[in-house]
Simulated scan of single mutants.
Amino acid sequence: MADYSMYTDQELAAFLKQGDEVAYTEIFARYNYILHSHAVNKLRDREEARDIIQEVFTYLWQKKETITFTSSLSGYLYGAVRNAILNRVVHKQVQEKYFDSLKAFSLRGEVVTDHLIREKQLREFIEQEIALLPPKMRQVFEMSRKENLSHKEIAEKLDISEQTVSKQVTNAIKILKTKLGVVVYLWFIMDK
Rank of each mutant, 00 (worst) to 15 (best):
R138N: 10
L116H: 08
E129H: 14
S150E: 10
S74V: 12
H91F: 00
I126T: 03
F57V: 01
L35Q: 07
R118I: 02
R44N: 03
A23M: 11
D20S: 06
F141G: 11
L116Q: 09
K17Q: 15
I154K: 08
A13I: 10
F188I: 00
N148D: 13
A80M: 08
A104V: 08
E11Y: 07
E124N: 13
Q54G: 00
Y7S: 10
I160T: 10
Y7L: 15
A131T: 03
I160G: 02
K146D: 10
T8V: 07
N87L: 01
R118A: 03
M137G: 09
D191E: 15
A13V: 10
Y59I: 02
E129M: 14
L43Y: 01
R30D: 12
K177S: 10
G181V: 04
H91R: 09
H91V: 05
L133R: 13
N148L: 14
R82Y: 04
I117Q: 08
L86M: 07
Y31L: 01
L122Y: 11
L133S: 01
Y4C: 06
V182S: 13
A39E: 02
R82F: 05
E110Q: 15
R123I: 09
V89H: 00
G19P: 13
D100A: 09
I117P: 02
T25K: 13
Y31V: 01
L133T: 09
I160Q: 11
L107Q: 15
I52W: 02
E156F: 05
L132N: 11
Y76Q: 09
I117D: 10
A131S: 14
E47M: 00
V81M: 04
S71V: 06
E96L: 10
A172I: 03
V111C: 05
E119C: 03
L77M: 11
E11I: 13
G79T: 14
E156T: 14
N171M: 14
I34S: 15
Q93C: 02
K120I: 04
G19T: 06
L122W: 12
V165I: 08
D45H: 05
Y76A: 04
L16F: 12
M190A: 11
I189H: 03
K146Q: 13
V183C: 00
L60A: 11
R46I: 09
H151D: 13
F99Y: 08
N171H: 06
D45N: 14
F125K: 12
L132A: 11
Y78K: 10
V22T: 13
L35S: 04
S106G: 00
V90S: 07
H38I: 10
F69A: 05
A84L: 06
N87M: 01
L176F: 08
S37W: 08
L132Y: 13
D51E: 14
L73G: 11
V112G: 00
R44K: 06
E26Y: 03
R30A: 12
I117H: 03
S71F: 10
Q93A: 12
R145S: 00
S71C: 03
T66C: 07
E65C: 02
R138D: 02
T164A: 13
E153G: 00
Y24V: 04
V56S: 03
K174I: 02
K103G: 00
K97Q: 10
